[in-house]
């Protein structure tokens, strides 16, 4: 029995991108919300709530990128040049975000500067990730084995819209994380912001969903043609369930439920993108089979992924377990 390696790997890459989006999503969301929490005490608690886990969360991005190079090298070699500017901007944003965790404890006078860097870096990274998504959905021009468009092709109204959508979405995740991990006035404030970000995210999901089918014929056929429309009809239905769970959790003071509901919104939106894309990995240009590395590469790395990803999930889960529960504001990490 032959395994469809390219299909399996498309699933693994999709999983790691999704893992990155939901995990680093709440980290970046906390950075996006930073300007709304000007108090030093609040900011200390906010960064401490993610300090032990953000690095692991970000590693999924390296797996997504490095894995793409390994198993879909042609997709990697065409997507990266096409999204040149958003990718560079994202990397620079992530630099400011990442160093702020340590730097803001290393100085009194310059802490406000690194706090601005944390907020701006997080927001920039979220915005450019959204832009990259939008630009990818719109398609990339490929000639031969190379990207053949210009270096500003990624900038369109649609990609700006998806950029804003991701900023709101991450802000929602961040606010729900704070609702889960904090207590008292900080939690109450986070809950209010989660409500606003939730409404904004849902509006954005609505606009993007209505716009997407009209970008490419294949998307339209996927969403409104038989039999796939049968499955795609479930996605909006489940989105409504998550939206209700979010609203219900926030208004009744639940800790975990809003966070899970927000995760659900992301998983469903991601599934929606998957329904639109498949079997393409570079929409309009390359299918997963055209972009896949030789079987000798796919099977070599698959052995490692099958063994190691469950182990990674186990000890990552353990790390979260160690730092479970509400943050004690008095427990200074530094």
């Amino acid at each position: 029995m032959a395994i469809d390696l390219a299909f399996v790997w498309a699933g693994i890459i999709a999983f790691s991108v999704l893992a990155y989006v939901v995990l680093d999503g709440f980290d970046l969301g906390i950075g996006i919300l930073f300007p709304l929490f000007p108090e030093k005490h609040d900011r200390d608690v906010m960064t401490n709530s993610i300090a032990p886990v953000w690095d692991g969360n970000e590693t999924w991005l390296v797996l997504g990128g490095g894995g793409l190079m390994a198993v879909f090298p042609l997709a990697y070699a065409t997507i990266m040049p096409a999204l040149y500017m958003p990718i560079i901007a994202m990397l620079l944003g992530l630099i400011f975000r990442g160093v702020a965790f340590e730097f803001r404890w290393r100085t009194e006078r310059w802490r406000p500067v690194w706090d601005v860097g944390f907020a701006a870096g997080s927001t920039l990274a979220a915005f450019t990730q959204g832009i990259a998504l939008g630009a990818l959905v719109q398609g990339i021009s490929v000639t031969g084995r190379q990207y053949s468009g210009g270096w500003w092709d990624w900038l369109t109204p649609f990609s700006v819209l998806t950029g804003v959508a991701v900023v709101f979405g991450y802000a929602l995740l961040g606010a729900c994380w704070l609702n889960l991990k904090t207590s008292g006035p900080l939690q109450a404030k986070a809950r209010r912001h989660a409500m606003i970000a939730g409404v904004a995210t849902l509006i954005m999901i609505g606009i993007v969903s209505l716009w997407t089918p009209f970008i490419r014929e294949i998307y339209f056929a996927r969403w409104f043609g038989w039999p796939t429309a049968f499955f795609s009809a479930f996605v909006p239905l489940l989105l409504a369930v998550c939206a209700f769970a979010l609203w219900h959790g926030l208004t009744t003071g639940k800790n975990l439920q809003p966070f899970l509901a927000a995760l659900g919104l992301f998983v469903l939106s991601f599934a929606g993108i998957g329904i639109s894309f498949y079997p393409y990995i570079v929409p309009g240009a390359l299918t997963i089979y055209e972009a896949a590395a030789p079987d000798s590469s796919l099977s070599f790395l698959l052995v490692g992924a099958v063994v190691l990803v469950p182990i990674i999930l186990a000890y990552t889960g353990y790390a979260y377990w160690v730092f479970r529960g509400k943050i004690d504001p008095e427990e200074g990490y530094h």
Binding site: L63, G66, G67, M69, A70, V71, P73, L74, Y76, A77, T78, M80, P81, R145, Q146, Y147, A293, P294, S296, S297, F300, L301, G304, A305
Partner: peptide, 16 residues
Amino acid sequence: ATFSDKAGAVIGPLMG
């Protein structure tokens, strides 16, 4: 990108 396209199948899994 051309390097990545040509050598990704060898270099990529090592980095993976």
